[in-house]
Amino acid sequence: MSTTVTSPPRSADGTPLRAHPPRDDRIAFLMLAPVLILLSIFVIVPTIYAIYLSFFNWSFYQDSEFVGLRNFTNALTDPEFRAAIRRGVLFVLMTLPIQLLLSFLIASFVTGVGKRLGTALKISVYIPTIISAVITSITFALIYEYSGGLLNAVVGLVGIEDQAWIGDVRLALPAIAVPAIWMGLGLMTLIMIAAMLDVPESFYEAAELEGANWWQRTLYITIPQMKNVLLYLLITGFVAAIQQYELPLVMTGGGPLDSTTLPNLFIFNHFRGDTYQGYSIAAALLLFLVLGAISALIFRVLSSEKLVD
């Protein structure tokens, strides 16, 4: 976008200047007003306010004190916050690879069956996605119940003794990973199905003529053709999983011994427990910097080919 004499003059937002001002200003701003006002009050102002407060030791009840970057250094050096981040990464490793693999397998299966069965499968795998985290937590907590719970009855059949699934430091995080996988699988599967159906049929026909088996077709056609979708699911799946906090909030409250305190739950518990805020806001901002940047980047990369007109 040069400013040489030869190029047509452009306004600040990059659109060519017209002889007359844009015609629709009045109606456009009237129609945009509700969204702009709501976003300003409930998203933009809170964001700016959060950035501002992160430099203060702030409390609902007392005067705040400017502390510069101390909240950020405190968060970065806090062993508990670091442990929560590590736990978050561990949680991602427990959920995301399994979700990607399962949804890929289910999607391959669904695209190979008849239409009716395919629809039944798609509806079924999507239903867990619409169930709330609270109801999911309540239901899985019932399954994990120590005495008289379903899971202990099942493992009892193969001679394993009763376990306190969500009460045991070693088992609690995996026990929360299971409902997280269950809830997140539907959306991933349906996105993969759509992507698989977009692969031109002729590719497979050619492969079939060459005598390629399912494994070869998957490895040399399906996966390379789906690489953008897989990348997208990997990144959005990572961002979603590391932010999970409602399941541990309801099922364990973060315990036992912080073993299920995922990063967002760590921050949330500080919001609720601390008199002085600032620290938790700084921690939340740090998370935002990383995750927001990741999602914005992926959105830009993947959309650069197609959307924004």
């Binding site: 937002d13 990059g14 844009p22 809170p46 964001t47 407060l53 949330f268 919001f271």
Partner: peptide, 30 residues
């Protein structure tokens, strides 16, 4: 067709990337 169309579009789209947890407390204050 209106003034600041691109700039406003960028502002609106940017709000998509702000995690709920980051603004949970300040939204509550608001």
């Amino acid at each position: 067709d209106f003034h600041f169309k691109r700039a406003l579009w960028v502002v609106v789209i940017s709000t998509m990337f702000i995690p709920g947890m980051t603004i949970l407390l300040t939204s509550f204050i608001v």
